[in-house]
Amino acid sequence: MINAIWLALIVIGFVFAAVSGNIESVTTAAFDGAKTGVTVCFGLISVLVFWMGMMRIAEDSGLLKKIAKALNPIVRFLFPDVPRDHPAIGYILSNMSANLLGLGNAATPMGIKAMQELQTLNPDKEVASPAMCTLLALNTASVTLIPTTLIAIRINYNSASPTEIVGTTLVATAIATMAAILADRWCRRWNLHRDRTPPRKSISSKPSLKG
């Protein structure tokens, strides 16, 4: 579906450019965008490699295990329908730990593995389970202690103080995470109430007696 949307946007853009006679501008913008993308990627590599190395050091030193242990009660509260010894719990903890450190690229594989494991517990394979919705909400609005990617982008564009966004990012992601958790709790309660509510019986009219 996403591929179809992007293809439609590209085709519509080229059609309008051709109709308005600005096809050369679109071509120039496409090449400039590709050049900028490559430049930004090269700028991100150094910072991401540094933080991935720090992540590996934290993993080897046991720091990630301590973070995961501290997050375990929170995970048990957020995912009450997932068994304690299920492999999904480990992937969820790793995903949340990486997101806390702003390592979205490292968190994504763990999030995908967690979704795959949660799917094994899902009774309806065609509909996302409550646990899967909770994990998606947490990944969309995750508390970030160190916004590594944003800092790398600001460094790449020669920001005078690339780390000044740490405080505001922490506040913003904390508020977003609380909103996501509250919305998730409300949806869980609403669905539970809906499932427990018995269906209303339809009142049928009695046939009239003709004399």
Rank of each mutant, 00 (worst) to 15 (best):
K201S: 12
T148Y: 01
T169P: 08
I153E: 03
W186R: 13
R200C: 09
R189K: 12
T148M: 04
L170C: 05
T173S: 15
W190D: 13
K206M: 12
L182K: 05
I151E: 02
N156S: 14
M178W: 00
A174C: 08
R154F: 01
N156Y: 01
S205G: 05
I181M: 03
R188L: 07
V166E: 01
A183N: 14
S202Q: 09
R185K: 09
T169I: 12
A172R: 10
P199Q: 13
S204E: 15
L182E: 00
H193T: 15
S202V: 14
S205T: 10
H193Y: 01
N156L: 04
L170Y: 02
A172G: 10
T149K: 02
R200S: 13
Y157V: 15
P199N: 09
R154L: 08
R194E: 05
L182A: 11
S161L: 14
T148W: 01
R189T: 10
V166R: 02
Y157W: 01
R188T: 10
H193G: 15
A174G: 07
T169K: 08
I165P: 06
A152M: 06
Y157P: 07
P147E: 06
N191H: 08
H193N: 15
S205C: 08
P162S: 09
A176D: 00
A176Q: 08
L150K: 04
M178D: 00
R154V: 07
I175T: 09
T197M: 13
T149E: 06
T177I: 00
T148D: 03
P147V: 08
E164A: 12
